[in-house]
């Protein structure tokens, strides 16, 4: 998407229902702005995010994917975010190897009370993706409009 030819990245944010999605809601109700490039998908827990979803996002032209969950120890389901952390560590190193720079993927813990952190994280992440430019490595050319 571009307005005035400026690069507008596509960013998918997976947020767990209990902490980070609520943190994003708090950012919203506190009017803490972050760029419209970020689109949030609600998942019950960060451990619901299958690496496949992230690969799919890159294949479909996403420029960055961020996964947000509860702080370690605070998972609503006790242990979900630990699984997410391990899975993403593996996935992100593999993605880096494949040429999708580490900066395009991120895991962040945001609690329901951290509206400010949510907004700051998203601003930083969008800034980072803008500096990295368009993602070309995994994009499936057949998916391009």
């Amino acid at each position: 998407m571009s307005i005035n030819n400026e690069f507008r990245p596509k960013i998918v944010a997976f947020c767990c229902n209990w902490c980070s999605y609520a943190g994003a809601d708090l950012a919203g109700s506190s009017r803490l702005a972050y760029p419209a490039d970020v689109k949030i998908i609600r998942v019950p827990c960060s451990c619901r995010v299958n690496p496949m979803f992230i690969l799919r996002a890159f294949e479909k032209g996403a420029d960055g994917v961020i996964l947000c969950g509860c702080h370690p120890g605070d998972c609503h389901y006790s242990t979900g975010n630990y699984y997410a952390r391990r899975r993403m560590t593996l996935l992100f190193s593999m993605l880096d190897y494949m040429g999708v720079e580490n900066g395009r993927t991120r895991v962040e813990w945001v609690s329901a009370a951290e509206g400010v952190k949510f907004s700051t994280t998203m601003n930083e992440f969008v800034e980072k993706i803008r500096s990295l430019g368009e993602n070309v490595r995994l994009g499936d050319l057949r998916c391009k409009n």
Binding site: V12, M52, F53, A57, N145
Partner: peptide, 13 residues
């Protein structure tokens, strides 16, 4: 899986 992928696809379209 299909629902979440459908959401990803819709966002990245």
């Amino acid at each position: 899986n299909r629902q979440l992928i459908a959401e990803v696809d819709a966002i990245c379209r």
